[in-house]
Design a protein around this nucleic acid. Structure first.
Length: 580
DNA sequence: ACTTGATGATCCC
DNA sequence: TGGGATCCCTCAAG
């Protein structure tokens, strides 16, 4: 059932329900037959709102007028508020919730979303068609805009010399898509998941951060071993990085303006950096940290704030090195940082100023970037390829994944732009395309998809595996039990495992094993185990547990004590802060 | 089965 | 250059 369908449209809808998708498409792309009957009910003129509402009541005696037409009521009030002049058009029948015009309706019809035809395509952003007919949707393998490859030298040549050649394997590795849901941790977090990271040495341990700053640790094989720490950060946990010298320590970056070095056994964090030492004095001065990376060679922590500045920290002495450097437009957010895996001195930054930039951290000055990569909108992320470091992959809010095949070449335009739905939505964690760290050929990337696909009558949002060398869609990973969007995805550095953050839940995917029970039933059952609690917990009701879920494994004992030496065995909320 | 609210980038003056 | 209205496939609580 489409929950967004307006009450008043029910008649039209039920009449049409039996109709197939084609008719719906037709309706969406052109003004067709059905509207005629609504036009007559339209009230035009410069009536005052009171009049208009009365009219409506009479016309729609069947239904409570106010309730039935919230959009019309809002529309009637708008002129008074906004001072808009001219005739007011009040529709008594269905009004498009996007453009407020009659004759069509945007929204879900069953599991299919019908676009507003007055807007540019929600996928490729071009006018003249909607998502349903967008060529990039119909055939993903054609969703590539080729760009000429040039070979002009850049200053990056100087930095890299020829050290990288020969590092890339020419042999395509075995590629197993982790396409089957293995297990999940439903509502492990109280707010939406913002980042994920696999533990570097403990193979089955997944770290997760959320919008409230909660840090989660979960062993997805032992399942019941999970911990959450709520005292490390006070708001959005944007990035996590392990200390390569000590894998018991995790660096975290947060919108609270701090970098924390957290002991995973105790959950006790010591601040490495606090950009808001004087506390809150309004949003215009509050600094948030999104981008962070570690230069392991130099023991250097690189951090960037929401005002465009980059900070260098010495990991051991915990002191700042030099002054902050402006690396993106002043006052704009730096969304991400990545040190080149082959040449850690080389840094890639992405920002809200619609640019990704490459820097030499040994020679940092404002405007001293080695290259500036222009994008259509905000750049959510930018990553060097995981082994050779000589490719770049960026995710931009203009619904394009950009690939630069060779950073020695001319970087003015990307080698490819891959149209892919990962639009910005303020309620979703920004999408980020990430390389598969196991793929020696450096071609496979994973990214969640915003727009849904009708999957047996259910709107599902797949996780896409994309061949970045061709733009071809290699695999769509989804499960009928997961109806929410999955903007956060992480591929395991060694195993064929995908971790997904979707809303407040975390999921683990594995490749489908032929020896496994092939029925979907098994998958569903597995998820439900976590829906209803792990181990000792009994199924309490027919719905997903509420936020008390987090305490569900209290049965393992020692609930309010610290997690001391027994790691990850129970839910610990902060260090001794938990309520009695 | 509806409504509500949280809240980031953008656009427009 | 800055404040305020606007917004398109959210999600889950009530």
């Amino acid at each position: 059932m489409p929950p967004t369908m307006a009450t008043r449209a029910r008649f039209v809808y039920s009449r049409r329900r039996a109709a197939d998708e084609e008719e719906e498409q037709e309706e969406a792309s052109s003004s067709s037959s059905d509207e005629e009957e609504e036009e007559e009910a339209e009230v035009e003129g410069s009536d005052e709102e009171g009049d208009a509402e009365e009219e409506e009541e009479e016309a729609d005696a069947d239904e409570p007028a106010v309730k039935a037409s919230p959009s019309a009521a809002a529309g009637a009030k708008a002129p008074g508020r906004g001072g808009r002049k001219g005739p007011i058009t009040i529709s008594l029948k269905k009004v498009c919730k996007v453009c407020k015009k009659t004759g069509h309706q945007a929204g879900f019809k069953g599991a299919v979303y019908i676009d507003c035809p007055m807007k540019p395509c929600f996928l490729c952003k071009m006018p003249g068609h909607t998502t349903l007919t967008c060529p990039h949707r119909v055939a993903m393998e054609h969703g590539v805009i080729p760009a000429p490859r040039r070979n002009t030298n850049t200053s990056l040549d100087y930095v890299f010399q020829s050290q990288i050649k020969g590092k890339i394997s020419m042999v395509k590795p075995r590629f197993l898509v982790p396409n089957q849901l293995e297990c999940g941790n439903i509502k492990f977090h109280q707010r939406r998941v913002t980042c994920l990271e696999f533990h570097p040495t403990q193979n089955n341990v997944l770290l997760s951060g959320d919008k409230k700053g909660l840090l989660g640790i979960w062993d997805y094989v032992k399942l019941h071993e999970k911990v959450t720490y709520d005292s490390v950060h006070s708001c959005i946990l944007n990035s996590m990085k392990f200390d390569t010298a000590n894998d018991g320590v995790l660096y975290t970056a947060s919108s609270d303006g701090t970098i924390s070095s957290t002991d995973l056994d105790t959950g006790i964090g010591s601040p490495l950096l606090n950009l808001n030492p004087d506390g809150w004095s309004g949003p215009s001065t509050w600094r948030m940290i999104y981008g962070m990376d570690l230069n392991t060679e130099k023991g250097l922590l690189l951090v960037a704030d929401s005002f465009g500045f980059l900070y260098l920290l010495d990991r051991r002495s915990k002191t700042r090195i030099g002054q902050p450097v402006l690396i993106h437009k002043k006052g704009s957010k730096v969304t991400g940082l990545h040190c080149n895996p082959a040449q850690p001195e080389v840094l890639l930054s992405s920002g809200n100023d619609h640019f990704a930039r490459i820097w030499d951290t040994r020679k940092l000055e404002p405007k001293s970037s080695l290259a500036s990569l222009a994008h259509g909108r905000v750049v959510n992320s930018g990553y060097f390829s995981p082994r050779s470091g000589n490719k770049i992959l960026t995710t931009c809010q203009d619904n394009r994944i950009r690939v630069w095949d060779y950073i020695f070449g001319n970087l003015e335009s990307p080698s490819r732009e891959i149209v892919h739905s990962h639009d910005f939505n303020r309620h979703l964690t920004p999408f980020k395309a990430e390389w598969d760290p196991k793929d020696y050929s450096e071609t496979v990337a994973v990214i969640g998809r915003y727009i849904s696909e009708n999957h047996n009558g259910v709107a599902l949002h797949p996780i896409d595996f994309i061949d970045t060398s061709t733009g071809k869609l290699l695999a769509e990973v989804m499960d009928p039990d997961i109806t929410t969007i999955s903007p956060v995805n992480k591929l395991h550095p060694r195993d064929d495992i995908l971790a997904t953050g979707s809303s407040r839940s975390i999921f683990i995917w594995k490749p489908k094993n032929d020896t496994d029970d092939p029925t979907e039933e098994r998958t569903s059952q597995k998820v439900k185990e976590y829906v209803y609690g792990s181990g000792s917990r009994k199924k309490s009701n027919g719905k997903h547990g509420d936020s008390s879920d987090d305490d569900s494994d209290g049965g393992t004992g020692g609930k309010n004590k610290k997690a001391k030496k027994t790691r990850f065995t129970h839910t610990a909320k902060g260090k001794g802060k938990s309520k009695a």
